[in-house]
C-alpha cells in the first residue's frame, strides 16, 4: 500500500471500498463464532453464545411455530398458515402496526412545524412550549402515560409521539424558516395566497429534508417503541426479546435483534429511495 493511502486526498477504488466496508462485519462475525466455539468447547450447554446451528434452529422455529402461549397448529398445516401464525410474524406485525401508527401521528407534527415557521402568530403561540417539551425525557413520562392512557396500545404510541414529535416539529420549523424570503415574496407576486405559499412552495421544498429528518429519527421511534413494549405488552418484537431474556434464549434473541436491524434498514432504504424518486431535483449535501 502506498505511503499516502490514508491521507485525505486518497481515492480508494471500487474493489477496495467494498472490501474495506465489509472488514468490520467479517471481524465481528468471526470473533463471535470463535468465542462461541471456545465456550462450547468448555461447556457444551452454554446458552450465552449460541452456535450458528442453534440460532438457525431457534429462528426457524420462531418463523414457523406459534408462540408458547398461542394455540398450537395441526402437524399437517400448510407452510403459509404456519408462517402467518408464527411467533415471529405475530411479533413483527404487532411492532410494525405500532410503528406505522406512530409515523402517521408524526404527520401533524410536520404540519405544525411548517405553520410555526411560516405564520408568526402560530410560531409565537407554540415555539416556547415545544422547546420546553423537547427537553422533557420522554421515558420519564412513561408511568404518567400508563396511568393516563392505560397499558394498551395508546400509551405506547403516545410515548413515541411525545418522544419524537418535538424534534420533528422543531426540525420542520427550522427548515421552513430556512426557505429564502425571496421565494415567498416571489410567490405572492405571482398570485399565491398564504396557504399556497405554505403548501405549494415551502412544503414541497422542505419535504425531502423532512423525510430525511424522519429517517434519522427512525431509531428514536424504535427506541421508544421498544421501551413501551418491554414494559407493558403481550406481543411485539421487544416484548419477545424481553420475555426470552428470562429464559436466556440467546439462540432466538440474537436473530430477533438482527431481524429488527434488518427491518429498520429496509424502512430506511425504502424512505431514501422514495425520497429520490419523489424529489429528483433534491441533492443531499
Amino acid at each position: 500500500m502506498a505511503a499516502g493511502s490514508f491521507l485525505m486526498h486518497a481515492k480508494p477504488g471500487r474493489f477496495s471500498s467494498t472490501m474495506l466496508s465489509w472488514i468490520l462485519f467479517a471481524t465481528g462475525i468471526g470473533l463471535y463464532f470463535y468465542t462461541a466455539q471456545a465456550r462450547h468447547h468448555e461447556n457444551p450447554d452454554d446458552r450465552v453464545t449460541p452456535t450458528l446451528a442453534q440460532m438457525v434452529k431457534g429462528i426457524t422455529e420462531a418463523a414457523v411455530k406459534p408462540a408458547e402461549d398461542d394455540e398450537p397448529l395441526a402437524d399437517n398445516a400448510p407452510l403459509t398458515q404456519r408462517l402467518l401464525a408464527s411467533m415471529l410474524w405475530k411479533d413483527t406485525k404487532a411492532t410494525a402496526r405500532r410503528f406505522v401508527y406512530s409515523l402517521a401521528l408524526l404527520v401533524p407534527a410536520v404540519l405544525l412545524g411548517l405553520h410555526m415557521g411560516l405564520f408568526p402568530y402560530a410560531g409565537a403561540f407554540f415555539l416556547r412550549f415545544v422547546l420546553f417539551f423537547d427537553k422533557i425525557v420522554a421515558l420519564s413520562l412513561l408511568p404518567i402515560l400508563f396511568i393516563a392512557f392505560g397499558i394498551d396500545e395508546l400509551s405506547k404510541i403516545m410515548l413515541i409521539v411525545i418522544g419524537v414529535a418535538p424534534t420533528i416539529i422543531l426540525d420542520t420549523f427550522n427548515l421552513s424558516r430556512g426557505v429564502p424570503g425571496e421565494q415567498l415574496v416571489k410567490a405572492f407576486t405571482l398570485g399565491a395566497r398564504d396557504f399556497d405559499v405554505a403548501y405549494r412552495v415551502v412544503m414541497k421544498q422542505i419535504l425531502p429534508r423532512v423525510l430525511n429528518s424522519l429517517r434519522l429519527n427512525l431509531k428514536a421511534v424504535m427506541l421508544f417503541l421498544f421501551a413501551g413494549e418491554m414494559i407493558a405488552s403481550t406481543e411485539g418484537l421487544a416484548y419477545r426479546i424481553s420475555l426470552l431474556r428470562r429464559h436466556m434464549a440467546m439462540d432466538v434473541i440474537i436473530p430477533y435483534v438482527l431481524w429488527v436491524a434488518l427491518l429498520l434498514f429496509v424502512v430506511d432504504l425504502s424512505m431514501r429511495l422514495l425520497n429520490r424518486k419523489l424529489h429528483p431535483w433534491f441533492h443531499e449535501a
Partner: peptide
C-alpha cells in the same frame, strides 16, 4: 431578485 428567483423543486 438577484438569486433564489426560481423554485428549485
Amino acid at each position: 431578485p438577484q438569486k433564489y428567483s426560481l423554485f428549485p423543486d
